[in-house]
Amino acid sequence: MTRTTGRALGWNIARAVAAIAIVVAVVAQFVSSASGAAAAGRDVTTTVANFFSFFTILSNVSAAIVLVLLALSFVRRRAAGPEVDPPALATALAYVSTYMIVTGVVYNLLLRGLPLQPETVGWSNEILHVWGPLFLLLDVLFGSGRRRLPWTAALGAAVFPIAWIVYTLLRAPLITNPTTGAPYWYPYPFLDPNTGGWGSVVAYIVVIAVTIVALAFGIVAIGRARGIRMPQTSPA
């Protein structure tokens, strides 16, 4: 085993471990949220739907899936080579890295001081908002097998957040908050026009959208600087 191969193996093991930690954290929080709702007599179905409507949860689940697939892909291609991430997985990794880093930044800048719900699992909350995003940041900076992506790949990172925002703003007024009984439910206070008005909501959306696209371009730039150029159909 060469030094490069050994490093790649170690990093992909770390990816698998990080994915497992994220999955365990998500499951622990899900069980706590669902059981807490049941014990309090709240609508469990709505609580579960709300749980999977958080950008944090969707980002972490997506990141765990991509990390596992990358680790499995590395195991399959070790014998044949080359030790570089496949194009689709490399693109997916750039996207989930963007979402996870944004999740960490937004939580620690805007939400860190807010009181936690009684059902919140403390260690799970830290994995989902701090350690998971930190690992994805380290993967961008030091992860092995990085493939050079075309600049246009960064634009695709905006598709999921835009779809999520549209879904959230359309769904929120139709949902009764299972905890407070309010005739709406927004996953994050900065998206709630009932507290800060639509001007504030739009401002936050614009800032976060610009941040996501800028960060995605930064991640692609780092990947192009660190990565390996492989023959591919897409222009680089």
Score class of each variant (00 low, 15 high):
residue 174 L to Q: 09
residue 216 A to I: 11
residue 178 P to V: 02
residue 96 V to P: 05
residue 234 S to V: 14
residue 109 L to P: 06
residue 181 G to N: 11
residue 146 R to T: 14
residue 46 T to Q: 08
residue 175 I to G: 01
residue 10 G to C: 01
residue 188 Y to A: 03
residue 148 R to N: 10
residue 124 S to T: 07
residue 158 A to E: 12
residue 27 V to S: 04
residue 187 P to D: 08
residue 78 R to N: 06
residue 187 P to E: 04
residue 221 A to F: 13
residue 120 T to L: 03
residue 172 A to F: 02
residue 2 T to R: 08
residue 139 D to A: 09
residue 100 M to S: 06
residue 89 L to N: 08
residue 193 P to S: 08
residue 9 L to M: 12
residue 83 E to M: 05
residue 227 G to Y: 01
residue 133 P to I: 09
residue 37 A to Y: 08
residue 157 A to G: 06
residue 114 L to I: 00
residue 193 P to G: 09
residue 181 G to S: 05
residue 10 G to R: 06
residue 40 A to P: 01
residue 147 R to E: 12
residue 95 Y to M: 07
residue 127 I to Y: 05
residue 5 T to M: 15
residue 2 T to C: 14
residue 47 T to C: 06
residue 32 S to I: 02
residue 225 A to L: 05
residue 221 A to P: 14
residue 93 L to F: 09
residue 68 V to H: 01
residue 230 M to H: 02
residue 192 D to L: 07
residue 75 V to A: 15
residue 173 P to G: 00
residue 219 I to T: 09
residue 48 V to L: 02
residue 53 S to I: 02
residue 29 Q to F: 00
residue 215 L to Q: 04
residue 83 E to W: 06
residue 174 L to W: 04
residue 127 I to W: 13
residue 149 L to S: 01
residue 5 T to N: 11
residue 45 T to E: 08
residue 128 L to G: 04
residue 92 A to E: 05
residue 76 R to H: 15
residue 78 R to E: 03
residue 161 P to W: 14
residue 156 G to Q: 11
residue 28 A to I: 04
residue 192 D to A: 04
residue 178 P to C: 00
residue 43 D to R: 04
residue 161 P to C: 08
residue 35 S to A: 02
residue 229 R to G: 07
residue 1 M to K: 15
residue 88 A to P: 00
residue 94 A to P: 00
residue 24 V to M: 14
residue 53 S to L: 06
residue 55 F to Y: 14
residue 137 L to S: 04
residue 119 E to N: 02
residue 26 V to E: 15
residue 199 G to S: 05
residue 70 L to E: 01
residue 165 I to S: 09
residue 142 F to L: 13
residue 63 A to K: 10
residue 13 I to T: 14
residue 172 A to P: 00
residue 130 V to P: 06
residue 93 L to C: 07
residue 129 H to S: 13
residue 23 V to K: 07
residue 110 L to C: 06
residue 25 A to D: 01
residue 110 L to E: 04
residue 174 L to R: 15
residue 14 A to C: 03
residue 229 R to V: 10
residue 34 A to F: 06
residue 180 T to L: 08
residue 173 P to M: 01
residue 205 I to F: 07
residue 87 P to A: 14
residue 204 Y to D: 12
residue 68 V to F: 15
residue 126 E to H: 09
residue 236 A to M: 05
residue 196 G to D: 12
residue 226 R to E: 00
residue 233 T to Y: 07
residue 158 A to H: 13
residue 117 Q to A: 13
residue 2 T to S: 15
residue 80 A to Q: 13
residue 117 Q to E: 13
residue 234 S to L: 11
residue 37 A to I: 00
residue 11 W to S: 04
residue 198 W to E: 07
residue 26 V to R: 10
residue 102 V to D: 09
residue 38 A to S: 15
residue 46 T to G: 11
residue 114 L to K: 12
residue 115 P to A: 11
residue 39 A to I: 07
residue 143 G to Y: 03
residue 159 V to M: 06
residue 142 F to V: 10
residue 86 P to V: 06
residue 150 P to H: 03
residue 25 A to Y: 08
residue 77 R to D: 11
residue 178 P to D: 03
residue 222 I to H: 12
residue 88 A to R: 14
residue 220 V to Y: 13
residue 13 I to S: 05
residue 37 A to V: 01
residue 185 W to A: 08
residue 194 N to G: 13
residue 49 A to R: 12
residue 159 V to F: 12
residue 231 P to Y: 13
residue 176 T to W: 02
residue 231 P to C: 04
residue 9 L to Q: 10
residue 194 N to S: 13
residue 141 L to Y: 02
residue 143 G to P: 03
residue 208 I to M: 12
residue 137 L to A: 08
